[in-house]
């Protein structure tokens, strides 16, 4: 233990109002499942001060639905997501993402809200959530607002989240788009369990009459935040999927990403592998559609 423990505190409110009140009165930082923060704590890298545990707040847990969307409480764990039938039936990319995050012990404790708020560029669930046009609700004592997840990340570890706000809910729209839906989630890492990604790739494409009716590509570990590949999306949407277009997409993707060399991989490798993944999965879709 490298941290000097007396310089920390952890308060555990049992409902959301209590938490929002504390947050409006004093300077505390949020603490959810702890699977990221306790690692920093152990290594002496966690900012000293007072933390607010959200773990005992049951209002923030669980999955529900209304007419237009599926609602995931921010304190819902990866394991609860994996086991949810609503998610399994409608949002397979999110299931894949939850399965490859850490291993089972992490999935039982880590939360989806924590994964979003920790703002790691290598986070596993945001690339999947971005493909479903997820929105999030953030609350402070007085008001709440609902924002697109794609606009929530401002820069490396910078969020559109005030110090007195809590992410309370993740919304996944039930929007139906006509056509055949294809989705692929691929995490490139050193091993299947526990690894942090070198590249995290989440692709959702809907094809109608050989035309790309919908295209979202969520990526992790290739830029300062998790991102949607907007330039590539512009190139692809409304076009007919062909070998030539796939080649163009493989070049266009370089405009969307800005990977770096770090302990896990190199910028060069990350660029190449992202291009290869796009090529590989789009060709699978092309093959599927060329016989019809």
């Amino acid at each position: 233990m490298k941290a000097y423990v007396p310089n920390y505190n952890l308060i555990c409110p049992t409902n959301l109002n209590q938490a929002l009140n504390i947050l409006s009165e004093k300077k505390v930082k949020l603490f959810a499942g702890g699977t990221d923060l306790m690692v920093l704590f152990e290594t002496g890298k966690l900012t000293e001060g007072e933390y607010l545990s959200l773990h005992a707040i049951s209002e923030l847990k669980g999955i529900s639905e209304n007419n237009n969307e599926i609602l995931i409480g921010s304190l819902t764990t990866y394991n609860e997501i994996k086991e949810s039938l609503i998610i399994q039936n409608n949002f397979p990319l999110l299931i894949s993402a939850a399965k490859v995050t850490g291993a089972i012990a992490i999935q039982n404790r880590g939360t989806i809200g924590g994964n979003i708020a920790n703002a790691s560029p290598a986070a596993d669930t945001p690339p999947a959530l971005l493909c479903y046009e997820a929105k999030i609700t953030v609350k402070n004592k007085k008001e709440e607002r609902k924002i697109d997840l794609s606009k929530f990340y401002l820069d490396y570890k910078k969020l559109d989240l005030a110090p007195n706000e809590i992410i309370t809910c993740i919304h996944l729209p039930k929007k139906k788009i006509e056509g055949n839906e294809y989705s692929f989630y691929h995490k490139v890492g050193t091993r299947e369990g526990q690894a942090i990604s070198k590249v995290c790739f989440s692709l959702r494409v809907i094809i109608k009459n050989k035309i790309i009716n919908y295209f979202k590509l969520g990526l992790g570990s290739v830029s300062p935040t998790t991102i949607l590949a907007i330039q590539t999306e512009k190139l692809m949407a409304g076009e007919m999927l062909t070998k030539v277009l796939i080649k163009k997409a493989q070049n266009e993707i370089l405009k969307d990403i800005s990977p770096i060399d770090d302990i896990r991989s190199s910028a060069k490798y990350r660029k190449k592998i992202t291009q290869n993944l796009i090529g590989h999965y789009l060709e699978l879709i092309l093959k599927e559609n060329s016989y019809k």
């Binding site: 952890l10 555990c12 702890g34 699977t35 306790m38 152990e42 089972i104 012990a105 039982n108 404790r109």
Partner: peptide, 21 residues
């Protein structure tokens, strides 16, 4: 995983859980 325990029946890493929770 050396510190694995069952917490309310769920497998967790006890090194990542603060006492207050």
């Amino acid at each position: 995983g050396a510190c694995s325990i069952l917490l309310d029946g769920k497998l967790v890493n006890s090194c990542l859980i603060p006492l207050a929770q």
